[in-house]
Design a protein around this nucleic acid. Structure first.
Lengths: 228, 228
DNA sequence: CGGCATCCATTTTGATACTG
DNA sequence: CAGTATCAAAATGGATGCCG
């Protein structure tokens, strides 16, 4: 495979030769929040069969973007993690996400699946480094039954699947409300005020949390679909 | 068409539903340096047949990412241009390019095509806003037989196909040397010193040109292919 | 559970011929 | 040129079945 090449001496084309095939960038999106097992990956990517998933993972391994690891005890089960090169695709994936947040996130369709991890990555896409100046804090997000944590250190953020070891602050919220949060139907401040979200922990960390993320104003791509 | 959807309520997936098909992002790359005619687009994308190109353009139009325009006289021929939404895919394309510059641009293969416009976009990907503080200048690049210009205004840059109206400075260089420039085999300063490139125009604009672009250090993705 | 192998219906694509 | 029509070759997806 991978015989289908754009054959262009161009950085964009070379990159797309490596990760432009169907599912590949979404696979990387999944791994951006930490190592995942084969089954978890498939669960996050409905429609991707085991055969193709296997092929994609092999390709990522062969190209040095991901590698197979063995999860530490007590898990002791195989999983896949990004290499440094794979990790650095984060900015590209987040750029796509930022565009999508602005231009493509209209109402959720009934057929669409949703996982909190995607919204967490959406938060990361909206992270405003300037707003985090002088801040060093670990936040834990409990969304539905899934746990995530974000480590903010000055102008940087890191968002990973799983609970934090020593969170400075914890935010608990239902999956639907969290979805509205990144969907701009709800601001973090409103969610806290209305009780949709409950928070605890360090007061300053919580205060600053509100300003860390800057959601783009949603826009319509199409000129005038259906005039009156 | 477009019946093949990831069906995920996720900004990244939604974006890839729109522009993740084969050729689409490269088509947008082409249009990022200005409107292009059908034939020019095909010339820049060897391997893309007229049928698929036509389908992709229709799709981009239908989704509000591009639109068909009529070039002003004396051209008076149809062309395609990005809409605002399409234009804003620039950051995502450039992020992919930056990654590629660092992790995927090894030696050029014989079969690979090359167009100066790609390297111009590569420059834009390496643009360092901080280095352009207080700078407002228009540069014209004459690469082989193609003309480009870059308009730098404070921390922003805009790179377009075609000559500039009133360039502050002009850089003339052969296609191969320009290729080495973005390939890190040659710095802009060296190119000028060795005569591979010739420059003219405003002295300060030329002086600052050297520092405007920050090429990433090239890295190898693969651990140890062929040990000694 | 993890992951490969196989078979098959459907799409997508690539290449080329053809028309205004 | 710009763009449509056509057809063969690949990629995908879905459904299994199998083995450690």
């Amino acid at each position: 495979m991978e015989q289908r090449t754009y054959n262009q001496y161009c950085a964009t084309a070379r990159t797309l030769d490596l990760v432009g095939e169907r599912w590949t960038l979404l696979l990387i999106r999944e791994l951006l929040t930490g190592p995942k097992r084969f089954g978890d990956l498939q669960a996050g990517l409905r429609g991707l069969g085991t055969g193709l998933l296997s092929a994609r993972l092999k390709h990522l391994e062969a190209e040095g973007l991901a590698h197979k690891i063995t999860l530490p005890p007590p898990a002791r089960t195989p999983a896949y993690a990004l290499t440094e090169a794979g990790e650095e695709l984060g900015p590209a994936v987040l750029a796509l996400a930022r565009w999508g947040l602005k231009w493509a996130m209209d109402e959720r369709r009934e057929t669409e699946t949703f996982h909190p991890g995607w919204a967490v990555l959406g938060l990361r896409a909206c992270f405003d480094p300037d707003a985090a100046a002088g801040l060093r804090a670990v936040y834990e997000f409990r969304v539905g039954d899934e746990f995530f944590h974000a480590r903010v250190d000055e102008g940087t953020i890191e968002t990973l699947h799983g609970p934090a070891q020593h969170p400075d602050a914890v935010l608990t919220i239902g999956q639907d409300d969290f979805l509205r949060l990144t969907g701009q139907d709800l601001t973090l401040a409103e969610a806290i005020e209305t009780g949709a979200a409950s928070v605890s922990g360090d007061a300053e960390a919580l205060t600053r949390l509100r300003g860390l993320f800057r959601l783009p104003h949603r826009r319509d791509r199409k000129p005038d679909t259906a005039a009156p």
